[in-house]
Write a protein that binds this DNA or RNA. Structure first.
Lengths: 244, 244
DNA sequence: GAGTGGTCTAGACCACACG
DNA sequence: GTGTGGTCTAGACCACTCA
């Protein structure tokens, strides 16, 4: 029963499900329904907004997906505790990031070959110990300043032609995105000193604090690659945001 | 037309929308529909699975929310480029994290008072320069090993009774979660040397690489708090996962 | 049993993009 | 115009929880 005119009056939240969502979000932000509190049932919202239950259900389902409410069948909908603050961290391709800043990206390739895998590496990549894996060691520069040392091992089964690329023109990340079906990624971030080799390649002091990201990516059943990304401290900042 | 018996045979994906979703996810993982490829339309999936359009629509909408497909009205559904690999990074409350490992958490409170805010800090917290803000400086130990130095400023308007807490018993994070309606968080992560004071408090060498997280949280319109969390390198590892 | 969420349907109207 | 996704409805059946 919403006339087109009334839509024109409030274009910000034309869709009924969005209106319901916005109303609930605003209430949560305002501190009505403190964490754990029982929120209105679907039936109540149906009556309040004069929409169908499916519409209300969609609003609540999306709030649940966003982690703002918790729902239990047979019990009700509750304001989420908000405890585990999960943030979205975007790891962009370095080339895009540098060019995005209007600077020039240059890559220096130090290693690009197949090597027999040691036991630990073979286990991590899920290949037989001693079998050949691809290895690249590349230093990325932003306007002549070393920004990242990228030491990467690739499972040949996932990207057989990996080594044929010219890594001064395309980054390993880009290659792997294009040739494999990424399924899962796992990473850890820590601060540490670079290895002697890394310090030399990055042209920093051996004691320079570095941000070290170890990242493993997988298809559904196999490991694609494991990479160690070393950034000189102060030259790199990971940034993230979280908004409900 | 799915009989109850056929459900019993495959309990893993009883719900039709989940079956459609699973089918599409599997196809994406298998490399059918490479990034950018046009995927089946809603009408085609309706015919293929013998379900209603709303059901198919829900499956596709959820895949879109998960970043696996991109949809454009009037055009179609496409396999997502997968380019911006966003990962979910969970910053847990330190107390829970330590206890979760079966260790003991102890907090040493060095500063707990109101202070006049300098210009820069006042601007970040959105208060008048020189007005009082709450300041806590706390070192967190895991079994007598310093794990984090937490230097935090709090907007008094958001948590007026902040200073009344016993921070050896409850962490600032917990207090703020309970007393404010968190709305948005923004953080940056980098590797650097600790300040002289931080090194002393953490009992590490001045040159020890540290993982430094600067985190600001906001309600909808005001800044709640800004915190600088310093972790001695090697004693802390941020971990994250990304799975479609 | 009453109330809750979980899900599905069959049809509908709309906005949009493209040839 | 045709095909696409975006959305809504009115009703339905089910599973679950709690008193």
């Amino acid at each position: 029963m919403v006339s087109p005119e009334s839509r024109a009056v409030e274009p910000a939240a034309a869709a009924p499900y969005a209106r319901v969502k916005r109303h609930l979000k605003a209430g949560l932000a305002a501190g009505r329904w403190p964490p754990g509190a029982l929120m209105p049932s679907e039936a109540e919202l149906v009556a309040e907004f004069g929409v169908s239950r499916m519409t209300v259900n969609r609003a609540l389902r999306e709030l649940q997906a966003e982690g703002l409410v918790a729902r239990t069948q047979g019990v009700g909908t509750f304001a989420a505790p908000l405890h585990p603050v999960s943030s979205t961290l975007t790891i962009r391709d370095l080339h895009e990031e540098i060019e995005g800043r209007g600077h020039r990206h240059r890559a220096q390739v130090h290693v690009q070959r197949a090597e027999p895998a040691g036991a630990a590496l073979a286990a991590q990549l899920g290949v037989a110990a001693g079998s050949a894996v691809f290895h690249t060691l590349i230093v990325h520069f932003e306007d002549e300043l070393a920004l990242q040392c990228e030491d990467r091992y690739v499972n040949p089964a996932c990207s057989p032609r990996y080594l044929e690329n010219d890594f001064t023109r395309i980054t390993p990340t880009q290659v792997l995105f294009r040739t494999t079906a990424l399924w899962r990624a796992q990473y850890s971030i820590q601060a540490a000193r670079p290895t002697a080799q890394e310090a030399r390649l990055l042209r920093v002091a051996a004691a320079e604090p570095c941000l070290i990201i170890v990242r493993r990516t997988f298809t559904r059943d196999a490991a694609i690659t494991i990479g160690r990304l070393v950034h000189p401290g102060g030259r790199y900042l990971l940034e993230g945001q979280f908004a409900p």
